[in-house]
Design a protein around this nucleic acid. Structure first.
Lengths: 177, 177
DNA sequence: TCAGTATGCTTCGAATTCGAAGCACTTCGG
DNA sequence: CCGAAGTGCTTCGAATTCGAAGCATACTGA
């Protein structure tokens, strides 16, 4: 039932990696958010969405893919896409193979905004994030974080969570797998 | 005025490190949030606050220190501390040296909750974050991220931002340091 | 000492966020 | 083919979040 408690606490390096990770991402996000705000009047999520869309061949993706991609709630995504659509940066359309699905496509205007905002974004990254790192550090960081990301992405079936109708709790640890 | 655009885009490793960082922290936070929610009915910020308070000698810190520490707005912190106080996990008191200041102190109950929640928190970290990493990876991650964090913390005078009364914009790049 | 400015915190209003519930369509089992 | 269960998205209500404005105390220079 209850998760098995870890008797052994984390060692300094583990704890340090964790705390530094959270702190770095928070600080980075905070600054980037400001930059995006006054460079293109975008929130961070909106930027992420546009960036993801701009990265695909046809510039479109399904709602669910987007939500999972940026780690956002479905309802939250509906709201944000609504804003982006109202601003003319994306368009909503039906999904070819699934009538329930909604395809979101970046517009030309959306691409323009993205292009306008990107340089400043990169500047922030360089100054705040990359500046103190050596080439090797960056490579190492990319490698390790990618491993972790892939691991995390493989753990729960993404947006799974069996829409619990009745009582059906799921423990973080029961999937001992 | 405008930031100098970076003509050179980021190389794959730089981009990869950045995206993986954001993705990892988002996913981690998401899962941790759930764990904290049903283990102790705490939000992530609340947990962070308690953890920070629990880590100091006397279990107390000023509002501003806390806000900067967890990268949160002042008003947001006021709100959260209000909740924690109402729940009896922290207590507010006057600051010794500064009559404007407010000291937040973790209570015994607060420490209990923290202790109750922590094991599960660590479990999540292990399973989701540390599991796929080798000892050396963790050490490297801790080292590099700590460098970045220290760099970030040293850039803007923390909560600075000269409360702009009149027009007094500040560019991200003008403080060429 | 005193005005003027800076800092610490809270209040206020507006925007965002999420989960639960709802609706539409799709898939599965008989 | 039909009903039940599953999935995709949106709507709804409640909670959180932030910045701007406000209030109180501290610091500064004359």
């Amino acid at each position: 039932m209850t998760e098995e408690a870890s008797p052994s606490p984390l060692d300094p390096a583990e704890l340090g990696a964790y705390f530094a990770l959270i702190e770095v991402s928070s600080l980075l996000r905070h600054t980037v958010e400001q930059q995006l705000r006054d460079a293109g009047d975008l929130s961070y999520v909106q930027f992420q969405l546009l960036a993801r869309l701009g990265d695909t061949a046809d510039g479109s993706q399904r709602m669910t893919e987007l939500a999972d991609g940026v780690v956002y709630s479905r309802s939250g995504l509906t709201y944000q896409v609504g804003l982006l659509e109202k601003a003319g940066l994306v368009a909503r359309g039906p999904s070819a193979d699934d009538d329930r699905g909604v395809m979101v496509t970046i517009t030309e205007v959306g691409r323009d905004v993205l292009a306008r905002v990107f340089p400043g974004h990169i500047d922030v990254l360089r100054q705040l994030f990359l500046e103190p790192l050596a080439r090797a550090d960056i490579d190492s960081l990319a490698r390790v974080l990618t491993v972790v990301r892939d691991h995390m992405r493989s753990i729960p079936p993404r947006s799974a969570r069996p829409r619990q109708k009745s009582a059906a709790r799921q423990s973080l640890t029961d999937g001992g797998a």
